[in-house]
């Protein structure tokens, strides 16, 4: 459980984070997205207690992290496992020795450490690579070692800071699946700092968008997807390219705004009152399930004007409809 409350961080006169509040429940994955320079890495450093907030709190399992130092800080840090970008591993230690590092710091006995390390390496699928040096491992394998190390002290929280940046798509997917499984198995609260929307779509339950140090948008992925005004929702499911309309008239965009949309919604549009006899072209349409929620979009062109009351008719069916800029002003002649 990580609770961030009113977190503000200034470096001199420069405010990097401004009143940021976020909560991650056990078993939840929160993605934090945003352009570079938005304050993502500072947020990450505050959560891993590498930086102290100027104002506000970072509570981990109920304990305020932000005002600790010395031994108390070190023991607090052990409750958040951190996975870094490009897995910083000690070059002169084997995979197993790297995973053992946090245990060594805690003065664990060699036998108990060895046992824990082999369990962890087994779990991340690297049992037979235990004695390899980092230079002998692929990027994805190095990141698995990093994940095993982050889990060494059995933390209840995980912070993944751009953990899949720089990995190829297949490796990214396998790393994300591993995180997803671990979250379920161990009930981990996971914060994923990322700039990749694919990552969010793949495993996040909720998502926050940071912009210039502030939270610009924050909500569950499914709510945002079904909110036609959400810019995050739009980034999660970008518009598909549409074919040009052949007839002059209005163009409308229709999208899911509810979890209860009947499967025949597209054909049902033709039965809208007043639609009979109107030629309707489907310029693009898609339906997909994201995190178990069906989301659909369509761009339709009506010959002439759209039937009056179309938006209301569709709203009753859980759809959001709005006219888009007339795309058919082109050579109508």
């Amino acid at each position: 459980m990580i609770e961030i409350e009113g977190l503000t961080k200034r470096f001199g006169d420069h405010t990097v984070l401004d009143d940021v509040s976020l909560t991650v429940a056990p078993g939840e994955i929160l993605a934090v997205v945003g352009p570079s320079g938005a304050g993502k890495s500072t947020l990450s450093r505050c959560v891993s207690a590498l930086e102290q907030p100027t104002r506000g709190q970072v509570r981990v399992d109920g304990q305020d992290f932000s005002r600790l130092d010395g031994a108390a800080l070190r023991s607090a840090r052990r409750r958040v496992g951190v996975i870094f970008q490009s897995a910083p591993l000690l070059r002169r230690r084997t995979a197993a020795q790297n995973v053992a590092l946090p245990l060594e710091y805690l003065h664990a006995t060699p036998e108990s450490a060895r046992e824990r390390v082999s369990t962890l390496l087994e779990r991340v699928g690297l049992a037979e690579r235990a004695d390899y040096l980092p230079a002998q491992l692929s990027g994805g394998q190095q990141q698995r070692v990093g994940i095993a190390r982050a889990l060494a002290l059995a933390p209840s929280n995980l912070l993944a800071d751009e953990a899949t940046s720089g990995l190829d798509p297949a490796t990214t997917t396998s790393i994300l699946h591993l995180l997803d499984e671990l979250r379920t198995e161990m009930g981990l609260s996971i914060i994923l700092i990322t700039h990749e929307m694919d990552v969010v779509r793949e495993i996040a339950d909720s998502v926050a968008r940071l912009d210039a140090g502030r939270i610009a948008e924050y909500g569950s992925v499914s709510d945002l997807l079904l909110d036609p005004t959400s810019s995050l929702g739009h980034q999660l499911l970008p518009d598909r390219p549409a074919v040009p309309a052949t007839t002059a008239g209005e163009t409308w965009q229709v999208s899911y705004a509810s979890r209860e949309v009947a499967g025949d919604w597209l054909t049902a549009i033709t039965s809208a009152p007043g639609a009979a006899g109107t030629r309707i072209e489907v310029l693009s349409a898609s339906i997909e399930a994201i995190r178990g929620v069906a989301v659909g979009r369509a761009v339709l062109a009506f010959e002439g004007a759209a039937p009056r009351g179309l938006a209301e008719h569709l709203r009753e069916r859980g759809l959001h409809a709005r006219p888009v800029a007339a795309t058919v002003e082109k050579d109508a002649a």
Partner: peptide
């Protein structure tokens, strides 16, 4: 980042 990693791993 290796230094950061060691610190968040609880190293004094």
């Amino acid at each position: 980042d290796v230094q950061d990693m060691a610190q968040v791993s609880g190293g004094s």
